[in-house]
Nucleic acid binder design. Structure first.
Lengths: 162, 162
DNA sequence: TTTTCTGCAAACTGTTTGCAAAGGC
DNA sequence: GCCTTTGCAAACAGTTTGCAGAAAA
């Protein structure tokens, strides 16, 4: 049976099922906090901070302790089920790590938004580079810093107004 | 007169002179703490944490307050004279931003080392991508996560020993 | 002399940890 | 019943901020 009803955009990654499997294989039991967190991560589109995760869980009446969020996210990162990224300001963000979908981020320095994007040429360059390097590369992380379209528009508008 | 005696590898970027100019233009005065920090940054090769900077300054008898380090680094970042990078663990690192030399980083997850590297293909991909994006990109940041040569060797040795 | 810069110490904030109770198997 | 998972609260660590004295212009 195919899963459905998630907010994934077309491609069903089956991340949730894969995660359950990996967790079971690794000897983890099924706790309420972890389940709630997995459900949330499964539906999320892009990297979230722990505070955001906490708020969203509380909003859907599945409040769990902050320590549990950190602990579970750490486990999931060890199992390569989520990726931890930092786009500045020293606040960690987490997102699902799907084998078939990989993206990077633009961090808007005006509004703080984190916007995902993909680029094949970039991916290709990183793969070639990784293969030829003297070190073993297990993952990578690209962050573009700049201003998002909305903030650019807002800035332009305020200039013409002034 | 040309400056000399710095640890720059061949290419004299004149970063220090440029920095002094920018700071003066921006209306900053010359303080002891800032001077000591600029001297250190001028000679450094790759990104340092604030704690490392503090230790190095103390070691050379130019101890300055930690708050000053943060404050000056912040000013320098505003003026695009240093770049702040985060390679994980939520600890910020800072390094000179030289217009003629740009590099990225490998973060070794075993020993925590941060190793710089350059790659033209990667740079090219990012430039093309930035130009075509709907947002205005002012900077970028690539981090490869993996294991450095030394740690790989150590791991291999310990396996064969065991 | 006026304004900036600096150091100290206290405050903040995101993250981690110890421990006892609750929950899975 | 045994062992894991969870929540709470306290501890931590990096970073920021307020303020008074020192230093630059």
């Amino acid at each position: 049976m195919e899963r459905m009803g998630t907010a994934h955009s077309g491609v069903e990654t089956d991340w949730r099922r894969h995660a359950d499997e990996r967790l079971t294989d690794a000897g983890y039991r099924r706790g309420g906090a972890r389940t709630a967190l997995l459900d949330l991560l499964d539906v999320q589109r892009c990297a979230r901070t722990v505070l955001e995760i906490e708020d969203e869980l509380r909003a859907s009446d599945r409040t769990i302790g902050r320590a549990s969020i950190y602990r579970v996210l750490d486990e999931l990162e060890q199992l390569h089920l989520v990726q931890r990224i930092e786009v500045g300001q020293g606040i960690a963000r987490y997102e699902r790590l799907a084998p078939d979908h990989h993206h990077h981020h633009l961090a808007c320095k005006d509004c703080g938004a984190v916007i995902p994007f993909t680029d094949d040429r970039l991916e290709d360059a990183i793969h070639r580079l990784s293969a030829g390097a003297g070190f073993e590369v297990t993952g990578h992380d690209v962050v573009l810093h700049g201003t998002c379209a909305a903030c650019r528009a807002a800035a332009a508008a305020s200039v013409s107004t002034a």
